[in-house]
Amino acid sequence: MLTRVDPLLPLPENVLSLSTARREWNGVRVDVSEFHCAGRVSHQLRHQSETRLNVLLEEIGSPCEPRLREDQPCPIGYMPRHMHFAPAGMEIWGFSADTRFARDATLIFDLAVLSERLATGFNADAITKPRLRFADDRIWTLVRLLSDTMNDPDPSTQLYGDGLTAAIAARLFAEPPEPATDGKGLAPWQLRRIVEYLDARLPERVELAHLAAQVGLSQAHFSRAFKASTGMAPYRWQLDARIRRAQALLIDSHASLNEVAEATGFADAVHFGRTFRKLTGATPAAWRRDRKN
């Protein structure tokens, strides 16, 4: 569930406004913040008592940099799409000589919950060793995709976000992922159980950890095996199933588009129509009309 976080009060000098949106997946709390600024900005970053990854998504003006001390420049040179990782208890400062806008994402890890849900251990060095400024295109892309879902109320974003956070954690500090045992996907009984579980809960939110637990697999192994069996990621399968249910309602009932949207877990008819057209190539009204004539 999306929440809005009260800004730092008072705002740091030259920060005109600050807004933060927050969601949580898989024991990973995600804060996406937007800073509108006018000049030099220097402030202590939040969450120093927690293990966190900060990813710079966008900046306008002088480059932003992480610092160990407010008055000590970052010893690592600028690089695009940079990020930093800090273990719990480490103080980090953010600095820019002259910035206008910055957007970043901070992922705060509950390592105990995350380890349990991913059914894996973490590399001890990776979770305790700070990385002040580094670039990883894969992590950056995954975090950007995660940030883009912050305001999406669609139930399928639960599985989507679970999958993204699992992939980020595996890339950042998990032990090497377990190999698939047979490379052929889920066993027939496993796939049947998962499909029945998803069908019974349409169109509700479903967590990836719960799906993996149904068949005794880690999230990473489950995601690979499910896609091998169905050709789809779990979130995409759930979304397709909701669209199939919507198609049945469009043909078999006189329900309005708003009623169909509500019954299949979409925020409103506009969101439903946009998703329906993306997956089928036609608007719900046109699709219904063509099949009822």
Rank of each mutant, 00 (worst) to 15 (best):
K184T: 09
G39V: 00
V55H: 02
G39Q: 00
D137F: 05
G273D: 12
R23C: 05
G231R: 04
F226P: 01
P63H: 10
V270K: 15
I251E: 15
R289N: 08
S49G: 06
L68E: 11
A124G: 07
P75F: 11
P7K: 04
G163Y: 03
A212T: 08
A112E: 09
A246F: 11
M1L: 10
A187L: 09
R242M: 02
W189D: 14
G94L: 01
F35R: 01
L16Y: 13
Q247M: 07
D110G: 10
R40M: 12
A102D: 01
Q247H: 05
I139T: 08
R242P: 00
P10D: 13
L111Y: 00
R22E: 09
H47G: 12
R138I: 08
S156Q: 10
I60Y: 12
L111I: 08
L202V: 09
T51P: 02
P155G: 09
G163Q: 01
P7A: 03
M83N: 04
P284R: 01
S253D: 05
V206L: 04
G265M: 07
I168K: 06
L217A: 11
F101Y: 09
L16D: 15
G231F: 08
V195I: 06
D240H: 06
R103C: 07
F272P: 04
P203G: 01
L172E: 07
T149Y: 14
A213F: 07
G273C: 10
L18V: 13
I60V: 14
W140I: 12
R205H: 08
A225P: 00
R245P: 00
L56W: 03
T275Y: 04
V113I: 13
A269C: 12
L198E: 01
V28Q: 01
R192Q: 10
S42Y: 02
Q190L: 12
L142C: 11
P66Q: 08
W25D: 04
N293C: 15
W25C: 05
V260W: 05
A169Q: 04
I127C: 09
F266H: 01
R171F: 14
S218P: 02
R4I: 07
L111V: 00
A105W: 03
S218E: 04
F272M: 11
A126E: 15
L18E: 15
Y197P: 04
P234V: 06
V28L: 02
P63S: 09
Q190F: 09
P73H: 15
R117M: 10
L249Y: 04
A263S: 13
A241Y: 00
L111A: 01
L202C: 12
E50N: 12
A255N: 07
Q158M: 11
D125G: 13
V215Q: 00
I243C: 01
N123Q: 03
S147E: 02
A263W: 02
V260T: 08
L9R: 11
R69N: 10
L159K: 02
L146M: 06
D162T: 02
R117I: 10
R245Y: 00
A286P: 01
A119S: 14
I76Y: 11
D98P: 08
F276A: 04
T283C: 09
G183Q: 08
V28K: 05
A228M: 15
R29C: 12
H254R: 12
H210K: 13
P12T: 06
D148N: 15
P284Y: 05
L257T: 03
A269P: 10
L257C: 13
L9K: 11
T230Y: 05
R133W: 04
S62I: 13
G94H: 06
L16S: 09
F276L: 03
R277S: 12
Y235T: 00
